[in-house]
């Protein structure tokens, strides 16, 4: 009796740890959706692909896929910078020309970009699931950091959590205490008024894409390590779940995205563990639809996306 109780509770704790890890990754991606939506009211469908690129680039750089193998840390930094630049490039090439076009045009373009990037990755890297060879990744990541009975927290989980928390804190500092952050908030409130006050809207939007995409890239690398699997469609599923998290938290709100990511990560792990593992992917969709239908502003949202 006591034994089963112990087993149950350690299973519960393990699920909790896994859920929080997953949630912090979703939060990292969700922030990218929510920031872009905040400034230009666009659902950037291609954000999931940026995340996928982060995973692929770091993988390619450490394994020498492009000819030279780099040390792990350097590869990660380069991959993240590349993701940030890719986000900016995406905006300039695809979305900026459509700023004044009907919103449907930009939304369709975003879907087109998402498909384009996903298939580009398929062409470059192939459909086979890639995994990071153990030799190139710092070994301590796979060692357990903490262990209570059956509950194991690996160093990788610790790294994922601390990275996510640090980046979120940094992001909040940028958004609230820097000039560029103030400009972002101003544009989110009223783009025209901000432009009239001398805010260079295009430049701020570029910074927003860079920040969001950089965070997405970090998330991609972390997931690539966590599941030890990198493949072209990884951005599709993670993207949807992170988007659901952003909607749940209230799209446009950064704290909302963080909270939404956490809730969704936990819901997925616990739903998969205790309700039905075959429907664990469905939880994100169901949450997304329910929130949109019942409370479109989400938990902290400002955008009442009713008929404008």
């Amino acid at each position: 009796m006591l034994n089963t109780l112990l087993e149950q509770s350690s299973l519960f704790l393990q699920q909790l740890v896994n859920g929080v890890t997953l949630g912090s990754i979703y939060a990292l991606i969700a922030v990218g959706y929510t920031m872009v939506y905040g400034v230009i009211q666009l659902i950037n469908f291609a954000h999931g692909e940026i995340y996928m690129l982060g995973a692929f680039l770091s993988f390619s750089l450490v394994t020498g896929f492009f000819g030279i193998g780099l040390p792990f840390g350097l590869a990660v930094v380069i991959a993240v910078i590349f993701c940030a630049l890719a986000g900016v490039f995406l905006d300039i090439v695809a979305y900026r020309p459509l700023r004044r076009a009907p919103r449907l045009a930009a939304l369709i373009t975003a879907i087109g970009m998402s498909i384009f990037l996903q298939n580009l990755a398929l062409l470059i890297w192939g459909a086979q699931i890639k995994s990071f060879p153990r030799a190139v990744v710092p070994a301590f990541l796979f060692a357990p950091a903490l262990q209570f009975g059956d509950v194991v927290i690996s160093w990788l989980q610790v790294v994922i959590l601390t990275t996510a928390v640090l980046l979120m804190v940094m992001l909040q500092l940028i958004v609230h205490y820097t000039r560029i952050g103030r400009a972002m908030r101003a544009i989110a409130q009223d783009k025209t008024a901000a432009a009239l006050m001398g805010v260079n809207v295009d430049r701020v939007v570029s910074y927003t894409f860079a920040l969001g995409s950089g965070l997405g890239g970090v998330a991609g690398i972390l997931v690539g390590l966590y599941y030890n699997a990198v493949y072209p469609t990884m951005g599709y599923f993670a993207g949807i779940k992170a988007f659901a998290a952003a909607v749940l938290g209230g799209i446009g709100s950064i704290p909302g995205a963080i909270l939404g990511g956490g809730i969704l990560g936990l819901a997925e792990v616990f739903g998969g563990g205790y309700i039905s593992s075959s429907y664990s992917d469905g939880i994100a969709y169901a949450v997304m639809i329910l929130v949109i239908l019942v409370k479109p502003t989400g938990l902290f949202g400002r955008f009442a996306r009713d008929k404008a």
């Binding site: 659902i43 939304l107 039905s276 469905g282 969709y285 239908l293 008929k307």
Partner: peptide, 25 residues
């Protein structure tokens, strides 16, 4: 009915994914 363009798109997307999940499971 009362949703705006992009939220409508998301609901339609989620709906079809749920249908496929049901068919699969």
């Amino acid at each position: 009915l009362r949703l705006s363009d992009d939220y409508f798109a998301i609901v339609t997307f989620g709906f079809s994914e749920l249908i496929i999940l049901v068919i699969k499971n």
